[in-house]
Design a protein around this nucleic acid. Sequence first.
DNA 1: CAGTGGTCTAGACCACACT
DNA 2: GTGTGGTCTAGACCACTGC
Lengths: 261, 261
Amino acid sequence: MNNSSPQTDAPATAQEAPVVTPAFSPLYQQIKGLILQSLQSSEWKPGESIPSEMELAARYRVSQGTVRKAIDELANDHLLIRKQGKGTFVATHAEHQVQYRFLKLVPDQGDLNTEGPAQREIVDCKRLRASADIARALGLRPGDAVLQVRRVLSFAGVPTILEDLWLPGTPFKGLTAERLADYHGPMYALFETEFGVRMVRAEEKIRAVLPDKGQRDLLQLPVNTPLLSVERIAYTYNDTPMELRRGFYRTDTHHYHNALN
Amino acid sequence: MNNSSPQTDAPATAQEAPVVTPAFSPLYQQIKGLILQSLQSSEWKPGESIPSEMELAARYRVSQGTVRKAIDELANDHLLIRKQGKGTFVATHAEHQVQYRFLKLVPDQGDLNTEGPAQREIVDCKRLRASADIARALGLRPGDAVLQVRRVLSFAGVPTILEDLWLPGTPFKGLTAERLADYHGPMYALFETEFGVRMVRAEEKIRAVLPDKGQRDLLQLPVNTPLLSVERIAYTYNDTPMELRRGFYRTDTHHYHNALN
DNA sequence: CAGTGGTCTAGACCACACT
DNA sequence: GTGTGGTCTAGACCACTGC
């Protein structure tokens, strides 16, 4: 736990030794790493509280302030949630607060509350072998088993989002259209509780496209209606990609909202 | 500076007295507010260093740790930039690090470095009276003077972005097409140095649209090419809107990149 | 009331940049 | 070396929650 041999140290005899050895990791970063390990190994599960700052300080033999700084960063990354007077909890996609953390489509008038919950329809759900680009996105090899899901989300009865998504077959063994349809709540919450896969961050590439006939029909669109194409890769711990999602959003009544800070 | 009369206190005799008085503002938040005032009043200008933590602690009669926490938050908001060993500096849009902080369009292959800088062409720049929607967005009254700018950005010679932007007339008195064309560097950097207006955050509404003929010609597009419509409102201190920008992005060679945390 | 996170302080020491 | 921000500690007290 001291700095004489931090994890990031490179052996002095390494083949391609770096010119400088920037390796220095503060104690609180190391603590952060240890907490992260406990989260990954499900020692503390989503929704549960983790030990108090004092307990963790004793466990890791550091001061409370150091644990605090580690937790601060994890809370900032939305991996933990602090609740004054109650404790620190493992974040979960099931909470209403963060229900739509990754969905940035909002109605032009009103907000998600006035609009009410989305109606979901699973169009398709099947296992198949990963094509080259799917495999690359998910860090798999072409031909590996993946699960493909297609669904439509409607707001106030109007089909608004068409999504295709691909999941690696191994971690999601046993996921079926029925289980998806039966589950009421965010899809990422189901992934957490049923498969122990927690999505912690994502990246999106957004384009304007014209839908093909199949997409147009599913969304009941007139011809020449441009759609927002949103390609998302969602990551679990360790920057491991766990989902590729290609969404097509109607933007005549909704828009993609983004805050730039 | 004590909590007996924080800024957020509400008079007990207020007409619509809240049921609870949550008014409690930590010391470091008050310090943050004081630093913010100095930034607004240009006591410290963009690019300059602010006093050291010890000096500020003495000035505000608090401990260094309290000042540190205030600065931490301001650095997180990108209002200040900390440089170990050198000092803390007022953030500026002129630095290469944050040059394109608000532009999320990136090339499909390579990155901004391989692509090189954008070519800019000012198509139009004129003063006019604000329409109802422009006025609403900028917090003005319809008929107030505004500056309207239209420009095209090209990458590797290919027109890629068409932007219309509106600025409130008063703060930007003296801005002309010539000054815009002559200035080499980010537009927001010019706003800082020439008009003392620093943009600190922005919000964007993104849609997929089909361009009209005028837009199509300026971007030299074939018919039926959908574009990304990006409507941005940029704010300076105190959440004061200072710019409305309507951008149209080609997304056949580029995409809008967004990180979800 | 006890237990939790949140704030504030004071002091020591480390890493980095300049001179 | 000196001054800057960055880390770590230890202790005191405050605010919120639930018993």
